[in-house]
Design a protein around this nucleic acid. Sequence first.
DNA 1: TTGGGATGTCGAT
DNA 2: TCGACCTCCCAAT
Length: 303
Amino acid sequence: MPEGHSIRRLADVFVRDLAGQELRAGSPQGRFAEGAALVDGTVLRRAEAHGKQMFLGFAGGRWVRVHLGLYGKWVFGTGEPPEPRGAIRLRLQGPGADGEGVWADLRGPTACEVVTTAEKEAVRARLGPDPLRRDGDGGVFAERVARSRVAVGALLMDQAVVAGVGNVYRAEALFRARTDPYARGVDVGHERALTMWDDLVVLLHDGVRRGSIVTTAPADRPEGHRRGRVRREDAHYVYKRTGQPCRWCGTPVLTAEMVARNLYWCPVCQAGLPEVGTLPPAPPAASRRTRTAATSRLPLLTG
DNA sequence: TTGGGATGTCGAT
DNA sequence: TCGACCTCCCAAT
């Protein structure tokens, strides 16, 4: 799932397996032939992720900017790369750490282009803070939310407000914050937004670690499935759970379109805004039906 | 086996 | 506002 956590993992793979090597670059499909020629034969210096954008930094000051979009994909391998099958926009090949060869194939991206450092920074300047980056500033996020009359469910999808959040994290972060997706940013306010940011930092880092999005606390998963691998059907509170009972209150989960994407939420648990000050970014880990909002706490994502 | 939807932009109209 | 991207997964047949 290419939300921010996936892109960070991909950048990490490039750093680990291809950085420091002189790479061959080509476009078997042909659509990126000119761009590939610009970096062909140069050393990959770094790989950087900001939100859903990835930048591969080559010697000579050139960057390859890649945005996977909905179904773009990188495939990695060692040894000789296979005969190109289908549309491979970009193929990178290097000697690999042991000289056996390492390769990376890019398919179906929304964006793939060679840019200068200045152009790369211009792209980054248009993005909001990234909860996965050390330079990600939750204050900037909170400021942008608190100044806006747009619905918070739309703001979370706006990459100029927060970079790296997609449709899954949007739905799940709103649920964990017990926040009505239709509440205006100005009504959510700075303090609640900061708490939501802190939860996004936790969720996205957990996503990087796992390689998938899991937002439920173990106590909110069915008995017998609270330890070990998290099943797909237990991973989320509301995302793609239309009509199924809310894990807290049993009310059927609703869906509606917001910013041209399907939004999922519990109309009872997310009926308004949580009290400021007592706000946990998350549901109680257990016995929620007998607890009040003020005594709930951050769910642990382990297990 | 077929078909529709999706984790997301991006550019043309 | 709509199609492109042209992949993957799952449900329906």
